[in-house]
């Protein structure tokens, strides 16, 4: 694969430098059949340096997770070799199974079948609270 030539797929751009592998892991890309290229330390006008992940093929990206990990990320959706859509991430209102509640008094600490859900309560400061016990995520 030539890294700048994707027929149908996505480009996750403006990743904070050094974070590409973390995002690769969080998106569980190792379990996918798609061709994936990770570019690190790419010069960027906006960020100085950045990481980029290019995925060729059909891959369902968890935008909530990307928005939570780094709201400055952009995602280019490539169809038939051209840019069909550019998505800007933002902090999602709800996080499902992305963070785990660390409050030992929370019901999620003893019942493992419950999804860990966090709600955005303060967008400006990016504060999330556990749906169940309302403890803030650090």
């Amino acid at each position: 694969m030539r890294v700048d030539e994707i027929k149908n797929g996505i480009v996750i751009d403006h990743i904070k430098v050094g974070k590409a592998m973390k995002i690769y892991d969080m998106l569980e890309l190792d379990g996918s059949d798609c061709t994936v290229a990770i570019l690190k330390n790419v010069p960027s006008k906006k960020m100085g340096k950045k990481d980029i992940i290019k995925i060729d093929g059909n891959f369902n990206v968890d935008y909530d997770m990307l928005g939570f990990l780094s709201p400055c990320i952009t995602v280019d959706i490539i169809k038939n070799g051209v840019l069909s859509e550019k998505k800007h991430m933002e902090l999602p209102d709800t996080l499902a199974n992305i963070l785990k509640c660390k409050n030992p008094r929370c019901i999620t600490s003893i019942e493992h079948g419950i999804p860990h859900i966090f709600k955005l309560v303060d967008r400006e400061n990016g504060v999330y609270r556990c749906l169940y016990c309302e403890t803030s995520a650090k």
């Binding site: 019901i107 999620t108 419950i114 169940y132």
Partner: peptide, 25 residues
């Protein structure tokens, strides 16, 4: 005794749930 247990209950029950105290919450 665990915080949020009545909320979990309300997601599964078919009848109304009243929280009669969930830990220190």
């Amino acid at each position: 005794p665990k915080e949020g247990a009545p909320l979990v209950a309300s997601q599964r029950a078919d009848i109304p749930i009243i929280n009669a105290g969930d830990g220190g919450h």
